[in-house]
Write a protein that binds this DNA or RNA. Structure first.
Lengths: 347, 347
DNA sequence: CTGAAAGCGCTTACAG
DNA sequence: CTGAAAGCGCTTACAG
């Protein structure tokens, strides 16, 4: 009925250890021991405490526990946005699925994910009582990572910081080399002979790694002409269209698209050149999205398994927070190619 | 270099109040006062403390503050999922945008959103040191809301609990009555004379309100035959298709779709009946999504302004947490209809 | 204007 | 097997 107003709502009217002590006639220390199972408390006492604790709906105060060195159960999740203007459906799709999986598995493990995406992240670090932090797609030489390091906060990342010399111990990632090879092999078998990689200068490891893998594949396949176009940020659709038009005139038969925002611009540009997909030009996106699935033609795409990545990320963070070795978690996640209508049938 | 292992990472090596006291030669209480600006501390002392505090990168321990009754800055965000099998792109689209807006504005206000969606929510309530909780789309007679009430946790909701008699004071919502009228008026002007509302039995206020508004509109327009089909949960595409086929044979010229998951099933069913959209059957969805935009034809839809809702939700929660009256926040969010290709031109 | 004391809710040595 | 004491980092009366 009446609202509770300014009072600290999370701890209003809660039973404390003292309440149980009073109720059972035991001392607070005994109650504490009985609850944690630590000391050698008699079964009878233990039962008495358990009963009272249940009856009074006792829950230990997390902040008090934290002051004694316990974990809070809070884990931070940071998604660094490289440049707001470069955002689009596809990236969001990936991010959302990844975040959601992370959160779901965290909650299922009695951990509470705090969303830290945004600009105020650094202010939160070292203040917020989180046990650890997961960072999705850190930027090159990411200052956040250095801050985390400095403050001694346990953290893991999805994708490595390309400019950092830190080891990959606490990094979850796709097997980009493998997946790029599979994708390009597939395109090759579908007739690719002259391809264009469309990428952007975000500096994030995702772009970098894909470009590298693409180049490596190209060198191993001299019968395929592999070219690359790097779009500057902020993303400009008209520019992307121009690049694609030029490529079409150069006889490119395959576009390997690492810049999801450019998707419709690419489709339009190809159509404007009077060419058709996939007969004249094949198109494959390096990240899957609802949009890719819904467009006509449906766009073939690499499914990076964002949900699996999110889950691994959490598992790895748990490892690090608890001081375990990282080896217990498989850190490389395989991806799949979803062949759809924007690529041809196998020849 | 070496990782920090099991130690509580958030508070490792942090300067404490005592450090500043030692550094300045003042007592801890004086330092505390100087920092908070409370007592009448001399300017000179205050400056001395500020300097030391900055130099030592002092940040108050949130858990300690919390024990003294301060807020933690943590706010819970709960999205109740009515039934996992009924989930789909459109709902997710809405949810994601809403959540994201909530999180963004929270972070911008130095609040930290904790994602509580999932089954373990109730375990967290009363344990987690959150200042308040926002619940998106509570179910009918939602036990979570009762728990929140019981525990005295400050909360607000997006959409009211249809079976609760609580006032709408702390509820943010769309102006569903208004938007339904606008949408149906628009459809009417586009030739709707025989319409079907396709809804589902989720019991959430969203469905209920739309159905009610639809009925009200129908009564005011005797020249339009308005029918309703309620799909049972879990959602079954085949069943939805059957309902739509029947409706098509009955001469329905407009489908008002409140069940986004049924979108493709509806399209397929209409096509299977040899009818075309929008010429034979118009289609309008009550929630917008990337999918609705990308499909061919592009689906007309109600844009519920999820981002605005998320922002309002946060603003309202802040109000409640700080003990203010709710009137300072406009709780009714207007929506818009995005007329696309699945509805006809105005006649 | 500044400091010593008590206490928020808990745990962990240390005595009995 | 159980309890009294000290202390995590802070603030807020209360004395000086």
């Amino acid at each position: 009925m009446a609202s509770s107003a300014a009072k600290d709502s999370a701890s209003r009217d809660r039973a404390t250890l003292r309440d149980i002590a009073l109720d059972t006639g035991l001392s607070m220390s005994t109650v504490s021991q009985a609850l944690r199972g630590a000391g050698r408390i008699s079964e009878a006492t233990r039962a008495r405490v358990a009963e009272a604790s249940a009856r009074l709906a006792y829950r230990a105060n997390v902040s008090a526990l934290h002051m004694r060195g316990a974990r809070t159960g809070l884990v931070g999740l940071v998604a660094t946005v490289p440049d707001s203007t470069s955002w689009s459906v596809g990236d969001l799709d990936f991010l959302v699925r990844c975040e959601r999986a992370f959160c779901d598995v965290a909650l299922g493990s009695d951990r509470y994910p705090v969303m830290l995406s945004g600009s105020s992240v650094s202010g939160a670090i070292g203040v917020l009582p989180v046990d650890g932090v997961a960072v999705i797609d850190p930027g090159p030489n990411d200052p956040l990572l250095r801050l985390l390091e400095e403050r001694g906060v346990a953290y893991v990342t999805l994708g490595r910081d390309v400019l950092s010399d830190a080891s990959d111990e606490w990094v979850v990632d796709n097997d980009k080399l493998g997946i790029t090879r599979v994708a390009l092999d597939g395109l090759y078998q579908r007739g690719m002979r002259r391809s264009l990689l469309l990428t952007a200068d975000t500096g994030q490891n995702y772009m970098t790694d894909v470009a590298q893998a693409y180049d490596a594949w190209g060198e191993a396949h001299p019968d395929v002409t592999t070219t690359t176009a790097v779009l500057p940020l902020p993303f400009d659709a008209a520019q992307a269209a121009r690049v694609v038009s030029d490529a079409c005139r150069d006889g490119v038969d395959t576009i390997y698209l690492a810049v999801e925002p450019a998707l419709t611009a690419v489709l339009d540009a190809v159509a404007a050149e009077g060419l058709s997909i996939p007969d004249d030009v094949q198109l494959l996106a390096t990240t899957d999205s609802t949009r890719a699935q819904s467009l006509v033609p449906a766009i073939s795409a690499v499914d990076l398994q964002p949900a699996a990545l999110g889950e691994r990320l959490f598992a790895l963070l748990e490892q690090r927070v608890s001081g375990a070795v990282p080896d217990a978690v498989e850190r490389l996640v395989a991806a799949d190619v979803r062949w759809r209508d924007s690529t041809r049938a196998l020849v």
